Amino acid sequence: MKNYNTYKVEDFIQDEEFRDWVQGRGHRDAFWRSFLQNYPEKRAAFQQAEQFIRAAHLAPEPLSEAEIRKETEKFIEKATAYIDDRSGFSGPSQYENRGAYLLRWGTAVAAVFALVIGLGWHFSARKQVAAAPRFADSLAGQLVETRNDSHHLLRVVLNDSSEVLLSPQSRLRYPSRFSGNARTVYLQGEGSFSVKRQGQPFMVYTGDMVTKVLGTRFVVKAFEKDKKITVQVLSGKVSVYKKKPERIPDNKEVNGLILNANQAAIFEKNDGNLTKTLVANPAPIAKRAKAAPFIYDEVPLPVILKELETSYGIPIQFDEQTFHACNITAILSSESLYEKLDLLCKASSATYEITDGQIVISRKTYR
């Protein structure tokens, strides 16, 4: 049985079950998720090992065939000129010897080049665990890719201690160490972000849309097959905008939105339309709303609506004079916000609609 009390960074790295869990392949998800609750003193070693394992799987950046061909031609051209200068080839009578020489030279260079690549791969693989701290330092600024090919959420801890719960069939690309003026990551799929507040803004790129925050909790859904990209804010404030907004005079198109808690943005991929709405199930943000039900005894509707507005952090627009004489007696507890609004509107002969991330309440009109 493993003695986790003695585990150090290298022990976590060499633990096959831990490596599988970090990479989303393990079968002990519940165990590793609750590991730090049982061994809180191992948090530093746990997180360092987790970051190293992720950093060891860099997103590949292969050269295209055209780039390889171009570089090869440049290399051969320079090498040929050098051989001509050093070997003194001149005149048609020496072309045959020159061609044989170049063929032998080219074959030798190719063999040496292949050997160097093979040895580099061999030694980098052998030294990966032994040189963990030095290797991790050298990866600063390079992009790491984490894919979740499992059927459960995968927790990813970033270098700034921000956390991402990566949904199944999703992938996240991010620097092993954040540097510069912004903390930038790239998401394909769905991720729930809990961002640590720092001086540098945190940027999530999803196709043609960018989500920018300083420190907050939000969910981004951007699967390639979906026609929409959505951002739902759980707490704090989020800025959402198009990656390359066009600044055209007299253009009425919205280039960016500011979202608060319980608000959401929807980006239509086909036409680039960006709109603000509310999350599917708004949650109370005020502590009082969580601790006790809403109990009203002949209370004017405007008072109730203002209390709901404060509790959920969502602007509620209405004509106070129209509803000042409408008194409500009700107990609102476990209902969702929309169910509460349905009950209040039914009792006051009103209707509501969601417009631009707000709730607008008006009197029913009868014909």
Rank of each mutant, 00 (worst) to 15 (best):
K2G: 00
K2S: 10
E17Q: 15
F18G: 03
V22I: 11
E41W: 01
R43D: 01
A45E: 15
Q48Y: 03
H57S: 08
A59H: 03
P60F: 05
S64A: 01
I68D: 03
E73S: 04
T80C: 03
Y82P: 01
S90Y: 15
S93A: 13
E96F: 15
G106Q: 13
T107W: 12
L115H: 08
L115A: 15
P133Q: 05
S138G: 00
L143Y: 06
L153E: 02
L154G: 10
V156R: 10
S167P: 02
S170K: 13
L172A: 00
S176Q: 13
S176V: 11
R177H: 04
F178L: 11
V185Q: 00
Y186M: 07
Q198I: 07
G199D: 14
Q200L: 09
V204Y: 03
G207F: 03
K212D: 04
K227R: 04
Q232R: 11
V238S: 05
K243D: 00
D250N: 15
I258W: 09
A265S: 13
N273F: 04
T277V: 02
N281T: 07
I285H: 03
R288K: 13
D297H: 08
V299H: 00
V299M: 14
I304G: 06
L305V: 08
K306G: 06
L308M: 11
G313M: 11
I314K: 04
P315C: 03
P315M: 05
F318H: 04
D319T: 02
E320S: 11
F323C: 06
A325R: 13
C326W: 07
C326V: 12
S333L: 04
S334W: 00
K340C: 02
D342M: 08
L343W: 10
S348T: 05
Y352L: 03
